[in-house]
Structures are given as structure tokens and as C-alpha cells.
Amino acid sequence: MIYLKGIEKVYRTDKIETTALRDIDLQVAKGELISVMGPSGCGKSTLLNIMGLLDKPTHGEVLIETASVNNYGDIRLAKLRNQKIGFIFQSFHLINDLSVVDNVELPLIYRLMPNKKRRQLALAALEKVGLSTRTRHFPNQLSGGQRQRVAIARAIVGNPEIILADEPTGNLDSVMGNEIMEILLKLNQEQGTTIVMVTHDEHLAKKTQRVIRLFDGAQVS
């Protein structure tokens, strides 16, 4: 599904050069549920951003379903993100000016889907995450757990094959965290969605099929 070959990511400023990732080779199979672990600053989020085509590696190649995306232009990358990938971020990243249902519709807008169909799918996705009574609310009227559920609904509304979750439970208490984890597990088991999740929580990582450990930008297991 996702294949990273010899990935290196270097951040350069005027004076400093920081290597965030070095020589990463990683293959994620279709339907896998993987967690990425490691101490803060070890490159977990950078790895996830490169997998999700949100950032470009300094060296190496990214393949999605055997096709190298290194030479893809902006429009092609946008289309690929839109159709294949759903993101869940630690800080939710909802658009505060839009209602819950409008936030969930976002990926479908870029598929140029008719209004009615869009609304239907968004409401169905909110139903799945147990938020069907909050569709007209705005993000700042919701609790952290509810916001993350909205983010999950947005991630799954377009039925993507891959979900990339960057510390999805990081801003939530353990009860909420477990609920969110249950939703992700269900998605993986029932729909076969490939999920890569960055986490600090060993307990959550144990629930995944494979754990990738990073240290100082390198893969250690």
C-alpha cells in the first residue's frame, strides 16, 4: 500500500541543518494497523507527513500502490490525498468557522460531489462516530473527544484506503482515548482500512498489529 525507500528528511535553516529522518525503509501492507513510537523529536510526525504526501523527503522515494509519487505535481498529489488518505491530527485541525457537518464534508467538496450526496455521506460518517446529534454545532462548542470524533468522521467520510493518525489520543483523557482507539480498531477490522498511527502510549500500541520504533530519525525496530 505504502512503500518508503531510503527516506531522508533534512531541515535546513541559515545556520543549522537537522536530520529528522535517515535511511527509512518501510512497507505498509493493505489492511495493516501499525503504530509508530519513539521519543519526542525522533521524527514520527515527519514520517507520517511524508507517508501522507503532506511533506516531501529530501532523499528517497515514496510509493503509493507501487506508483512512485516523487515526481507528482501539486494537482496530482492533492487528488491522491483526497481519494486515498484520511488524516487525524493530535490537535484535531477542524475549521472553526464551519459547522461540524460542513467540516466533515470537506474532503467531498474537492471531489466535486453534489450537495445532497455530500450531506448524506457526512451525516452517515457522524453517525458512525456517535455524533449525529451535534451536526449543527461548531467545533468550539464541543469537547476534545467530540472534536476528535468529528476529525475521524472527516477522515472516513470519503472512504479512504489509508488513515494516518498523528497522536489521535494525545489531547484526550484515557477514557476518551480508548473510545477513539476503539473506533480506529473497528475501522481496520470491519472495513479493512490501512491505519498508521503515531502514539506515545504503549497500551494503545499493543492493540496494533505492528510497532515501528524510531530513535533520532532512524528506524530501530
Binding site: L54, A78, F87, I95, D97, L106, Y110
Partner: peptide
């Protein structure tokens, strides 16, 4: 900026 990032992540191209 964050909204732009979200929109890009979910499929908006620079042109859009």
C-alpha cells in the same frame, strides 16, 4: 494557515 493546511491535506490543490 492552519485552514489552508487542512484543506490541502484533504485534497485542495494550490489552484483550487
Amino acid at each position: 494557515a492552519s485552514e489552508i493546511g487542512i484543506r490541502k491535506a484533504y485534497g485542495a490543490s494550490s489552484l483550487t
